[in-house]
Amino acid sequence: MSFIEVRNLQKSFGSLEVLKDISFDVEQNDVLAIIGPSGSGKSTMLRSLIQLEQVGGGSILVDGDYLVNNGVYTSPADSKKINAKMGMVFQQFNLFPHLTVKQNLELAPKLVKKEKAKEYSNRAIELLDKVGLASKADEFPSRLSGGQKQRVAIARALMMNPEILLFDEPTSALDPQLTKEVLHVMKNLAEEHMTMIVVTHEMEFASSVANRVIFMDDGMIVESGSPDEIFKTPKEQRTKQFLNYEMNE
């Protein structure tokens, strides 16, 4: 059984269908890149997995438990347990501006997991070190660059020991230099076999770090496969068009 199984996912905003019959699997240790033009539904799809969006139909199975089964959500208590297996990193970082970097990391372990201060404090320092920001522990987020903020956000998500990390265009708000440092951290995570789903416009990252790529357009999965299959020998016309356009950017 796959770690995540998505079947026939549907969602509409009013009369606009944004997800049309989406199905895919994610295995443990997968790094799945989701690419596609703006408005193709890839962010909505990702956000549905962690219940930031309600879907209209279909099923999401996470680690053997249904978050949604044929359009019916499980109880809030159960969905909370399921969501806790996932961490999320946002395009706009969404750090808590009134807390220092270290406090940002510590808030959830303290409040949600009721961990001991020593435990979460040590882990916070460890993870900040891992993303290269141990020296910024006591700074407020407003004093950090975008790349640093995103690395803090990744560390914050890791504090909850998720089994899978969801990235929603993590570098789209960053310039190329800062993008590099964030991708570097993500690459390290991939090498440590962190399971990840990454919605991205970084074709280079998708082709070199991901082991599977999904191309979405107009609310549907047009094509999926290994990076080589998608980037070197795409079958679908729409995939070719999109890649041509992206590569010539």
Binding site: L52, N83, G87, F90, Q92, N94, F96, A108, A157
Partner: peptide, 13 residues
């Protein structure tokens, strides 16, 4: 920003 609510939600608060 609504991102503050979303970040709190995904962290389980």
């Amino acid at each position: 920003d609504k991102g503050q609510y979303e970040a709190s939600q995904v962290l389980g608060l």
